[in-house]
Amino acid sequence: MPSSISQTFETLRDRAQCALIPFLTAGDPDLETTAEALRLLDQQGADMIELGVPYSDPLADGPVIQAAATRALAKGTTLDQVLAMVTQVAPTLRSPIILFTYYNPILNRGIEQFLQNLVAAGVKGLVVPDLPLEEADILLKPAEKAGIEVILLVAPTSPAERILAIAAKSQGFIYLVSTTGVTGVRDTMEDRVKVLIEQLRQVTDKPIGVGFGISQPEHARQVMEWGADGTIVGSAFVKRLSEGSPKEGLKALSEFCHTLKVAITPVS
């Protein structure tokens, strides 16, 4: 049974390891493939896995994840189906599952009910990209009670006093958005990520996970060397899984995960 997000980071910190956190859109191409992908990622070195619930209006996502969500919804993928799949798969994984969902589906279900469903499914963490600090209180308190860690995001545009407040309230880790923009594959890592990591480090002991735009092993290694505790890779996985047949997609995903893991494993 996987441990909490915080505990997982603690264990990794003791081993001086940077967490590899792959992201997948649930239900693309189908939930069976998503389940298999979760197992493969877990075997190939993922330390936590972020699982995106497909949504009709994914404001924070770039073309790759938008398209994946559209395909998943066209297949009729629902939150209940995603959670049913997680209920089956989560106990067999080392990696805790972090659910990524926009706020409207949470509001639609009701916060309490939603959290209970997450707990029952074995989900450990939650990222809600359109719920900034000012609106997050309504979710943070009941989530803490339920034992679901809500991870808040810091952006390159966040001023110092906001960074401090977000760092104080974020649970599990702090999700540092590496670039102004939506999710998606990018060629380079901006140097200001280094500054942001240093800035965050000064105000918090909580782990820092860097995401958005990390698509190559060099990027992952770069953010690790800059002092990140975790690296989140999304579109690059989603894209690989969606190309060719599910079997080919799973193979490409598995190899890519291994490559990333090697890139961020300290040479001993």
């Binding site: 404001l59 924070a60 359109d130 900034p132 600090l133 000012e134 609106e135 808040l152 995001l153 545009t157």
Partner: peptide, 20 residues
Amino acid sequence: ALGRYGQFGGKYVPETLMPA
């Protein structure tokens, strides 16, 4: 002050936009 009209309104956007 929070941009609310009763329960309606608010700011449900990615953090990147909040400072703007």
